[in-house]
Write a protein that binds this DNA or RNA. Structure first.
Lengths: 249, 249
DNA sequence: CATGTCCGTTTGACCGGACATACGGTTTCA
DNA sequence: TGAAACCGTATGTCCGGTCAAACGGACATG
C-alpha cells in the first residue's frame, strides 16, 4: 500500500480514530485515488494488526462524512470529489463568533441592548417558559474586521449566573454560556431572507430594504432546556452559509 | 419497562434497526421521559434477548441524531427536547421538488430556457470541465400551489442520455437524473441572499431589489463526477430552509 | 468542615468468530 | 449466440467476551 498507515497502540487516542484520521488525510492529499481501495476489510485489518470491528468503525466515520462509499459484494471506494470539497464534516451547531475567528476575520461585538423583559409569545413558547415570564433580551452588533456584519437578537432564559454584559463585547455568547456550564446540544434553525428595517440598515451600513440573510434558531442543552432563542440578520455580501450535504441512502 | 419493545427475528429488517425505530417512536411519543433510561446496556440487551453490540448499534444511531446522550459511568439518557424538535435527521441533500411534494404544496415547473452553451469559467471549474466546453444550461421557474416560488438555474455536464425537456415540467430534475442512472451523492451548498434582478422580479411576482434567498450548490455522484451546478433564487416569503443542527461533541 | 481517596457502576474500546446477503464475473445450458 | 445458473468475494449483521476510562457517591483524612 505504501501509505504511511499504522496505529500507535501506546497512544491514548482510540485506534479507530487514529486510523480514520490517517485515511482522511490520505484521501484529502490525493494519496488515495478512486477505484477499489482498502480492499477487503478482513485483509486490511490483518495488515494493520487490528480487528475487523475496529477497522469498520474507522471506515464508518468516513462513510458518514461522505469520503467513502461501501457496496456489498464489491468493496469500499474513495469518493474523489471529497478531496475537492475539503474537510467538511456534517453541518454542526457552530458559533458565528468562533466561525469568524477560525476564518481569521477578527470578530468584535457591540452590545446594543441588554435587559430583562417579559417574553413575547413566540419566544416564550420556544424557550418553554410562560408567556410574559422574565427573560433576558440581548441585542448585539457583530463586526468582522471592523465592518458591521450582523445584528444578533437573542432571548435567554433567566437561569443560573448570567454572563456579565462586559464580557459579551470581548467574546462570543456561546463561549460564555459554555464557561457558565451551559452546553449547547442541538438546535433548530430556519434560514430566510428579508429586507433590512430602518434601524438595521443604519446599524449595518446598508439601505432600508436591502436584502439580509436571517437565521432564527432555538438552541437547547442536553437536558432539553432551552438555552437561547436567536433571531439574527446578516449582511449577505459579507457572510454566507457554507454547508456540505449528503444524499440519504 | 412496560414499553412495547421487542424485536422480530423473522423479519428481514435488521435487529438494530428495529430497536432504533421503536426507541425513536417511544421517545417522540413521550413514552420515554428524560432521566436515566435504558439503564445498563448489558441488562437492557439481556432483557431484549440481544447482544450488547447490537443494542449499542441501535443506540448509536439515535445518539447521532441527537435523541440520546451517553455519558460514561452514568448511563444513556433521553433528550426530551428532541420530541419537540420532531423527527429531523441530519440535514440531507434533498430535492426542492420532493420537499414541496412531501409538504403537500403541489410543485410545478415551467422550463424557461434549455440549451447547450459554452460553460462559463466558474461553472466549468465547478463541473470539472474545461472552460468553454459544452454544457447544458437549464432555467426553470418553480411554482408551489400555483404561485411562483423560485428561479432555478442549473448547468449540467453533457454525459449520457439527458432527460427530455418535456419531462422537466412534470417532475423534478433529481428524479429524472436518478432515473437515468445518475445518483447524487453529496453536495456543497452556499446559502446567501440578494436583491431580485428585474427579470427575476417579473418572474416571481416581486419588485426589483426584493430580497431573495439564494442557494448555490454543486452536486456530485459517488464516482466524484459533477452532476449539477445550481444557482437558485427563492422567494423567502414563500419558503425557507429548516435545519436541525447538532453541537460537535 | 473541607478535601482527597477509594470503589462500584456504566459506557468506551477492542478482540475473535459466525452466518447472511448482494454484487460481478464466469460458466453452463438451451 | 444468448440467457440463466453458479460461485467467489466483499460487506452487512450478529454474537460472545475482555479490559480500560470516567463518573458519582461514600468514605476516610487533614
Amino acid at each position: 500500500m505504501s501509505l504511511g498507515l499504522g496505529v500507535d497502540r501506546g497512544s491514548p487516542v482510540p485506534l479507530y480514530f487514529q486510523l480514520a484520521e490517517q485515511l482522511r488525510t490520505a484521501i484529502e492529499q490525493g494519496r488515495l485515488a478512486p477505484g477499489m481501495l482498502l480492499g477487503n476489510e478482513i485483509a486490511f485489518a490483518a495488515r494493520l494488526g487490528l480487528s475487523r470491528p475496529t477497522v469498520r468503525q474507522a471506515l464508518r466515520t468516513l462513510v458518514d462524512q461522505g469520503l467513502l462509499v461501501r457496496r456489498k459484494g464489491v468493496g469500499t471506494r474513495v469518493v474523489p470529489a471529497a478531496a475537492a470539497a475539503g474537510a467538511a464534516p456534517r453541518p454542526a451547531l457552530t458559533s458565528l463568533h468562533d466561525e469568524l475567528d477560525a476564518a481569521g476575520r477578527h470578530p468584535a461585538t457591540r452590545v446594543l441592548h441588554d435587559a430583562v423583559v417579559a417574553a413575547p409569545a413566540e419566544v416564550a413558547e420556544a424557550l418553554g417558559v410562560e408567556e410574559g415570564a422574565e427573560v433576558r433580551r440581548l441585542e448585539r452588533l457583530r463586526l468582522a474586521d471592523g465592518e458591521p456584519l450582523a445584528v444578533l437578537r437573542s432571548h435567554l432564559p433567566l437561569r443560573g449566573p448570567l454572563p456579565p454584559a462586559a464580557d459579551l463585547e470581548a467574546t462570543g455568547l456561546f463561549r460564555l454560556l459554555r464557561a457558565a456550564g451551559v452546553v449547547p446540544h442541538s438546535a433548530r434553525q430556519r434560514i430566510g431572507a428579508r429586507g433590512a428595517t430602518r434601524s438595521e440598515a443604519r446599524l449595518l451600513d446598508e439601505t432600508e430594504g436591502a436584502p439580509l440573510l436571517t437565521l432564527r434558531r432555538v438552541v437547547v442543552d442536553a437536558a432539553g432546556r432551552a438555552v437561547e432563542h436567536a433571531d439574527h440578520a446578516v449582511r449577505p455580501t459579507r457572510w454566507s452559509l457554507d454547508q456540505r450535504l449528503l444524499a440519504p441512502e
